[in-house]
């Protein structure tokens, strides 16, 4: 869901060890990289390395049908052109989705026809949804390992709050890191002469730095990145001057890393 805000379609590269996704947005400003290791799944099997080209907008719509307690199984057969999603309801209760289906058009004076009786028995167990797989060209180009001058670790909820609040006030933000202070300043759209500083030193911030860094970014993208905040309690901002910002959310069996090109010039 976080990725679908940035990119509309992408390839999930599946192998025995993990599922990975890398995709760049159409404007070439942001790049997202996701990895979920096999141990992160209740069960995982990949008989053959294969890319699953998925329309993320459609996938997000389908995922909205799931409730938090649903177990989602993703399956793609060899040579298949669909990704099959199965939601297995853990509870015995019907989800609202089932209700909508079962009660639609029912004549209250007549008993359920056999078809609906069959559905009532099966639907609580599974919903099957298919998504067509596209043959999108995978992004195979990788970038060099970057040595960053600074790393700031802070609670992801604080980062989400800061960028969301600042996005109400301006389009861009300047992030400056010195030895003891991280300053996240709103920039006015037309002039940076009257920057309005925002208190940006929440509890639990760790700063590691070799060199003072000052970079300017589009807030819109940072807000989109921050949607991944629910995946991890902490977020890391890795920066060097004149190098893309890396916003990293690591979780137990994987990560989502977002790269953002800085603004250049004053």
């Amino acid at each position: 869901k976080s990725c679908s805000i940035l990119v509309t379609d992408a390839n999930f590269e599946c192998n025995e060890e993990n599922i990975m996704l890398q995709a760049m947005d159409n404007s070439h400003i942001a790049l997202v990289s996701v990895e979920i290791g096999a141990p992160g799944f209740t069960s995982y099997r990949c008989d053959r390395t294969m890319p699953l080209g998925v329309d993320l907008t459609s996938l997000t719509k389908v995922l909205r049908c799931a409730k938090d307690e649903n177990i989602c199984t993703l399956k793609a057969a060899d040579e298949a052109d669909v990704l099959n999603l199965v939601y297995d309801a853990k509870s015995a209760f019907f989800s609202p989705f089932f209700f909508a289906f079962m009660w639609h058009g029912r004549d209250a004076s007549s008993p359920f026809p056999p078809f609906f009786l069959l559905c009532s028995a099966l639907l609580p167990l599974f919903i099957h949804l298919n998504i067509s797989l596209s043959s999108q060209t995978p992004i195979t180009s990788s970038w060099p390992e970057t040595k960053y001058d600074t790393r700031v670790t802070l609670p992801s909820a604080e980062f989400t709050r800061i960028v969301r609040d600042l996005s109400q006030l301006g389009e861009h933000v300047r992030i400056e890191v010195s030895k003891e202070v991280v300053r996240i300043s709103k920039l006015k759209a037309k002039s940076s002469a009257e920057d309005e500083d925002n208190d940006s030193i929440p509890t639990g911030v760790v700063i590691e730095m070799n060199q003072h860094v000052s970079l300017t970014f589009s807030l819109k993208y940072l807000v989109n990145f921050s949607k991944s905040g629910s995946l991890s309690g902490e977020v890391q901002l890795l920066m060097s001057n004149d190098v893309p910002l890396l916003v990293a959310y690591d979780f137990t069996q994987g990560y989502i890393r977002c790269y953002l090109a800085p603004k250049i010039g004053d």
Partner: peptide
């Protein structure tokens, strides 16, 4: 301000 281009940057790397 102009915008840094990621695709170009990584291509040059």
């Amino acid at each position: 301000m102009s915008q840094f281009n990621l695709k170009q940057y990584y291509a040059e790397q």
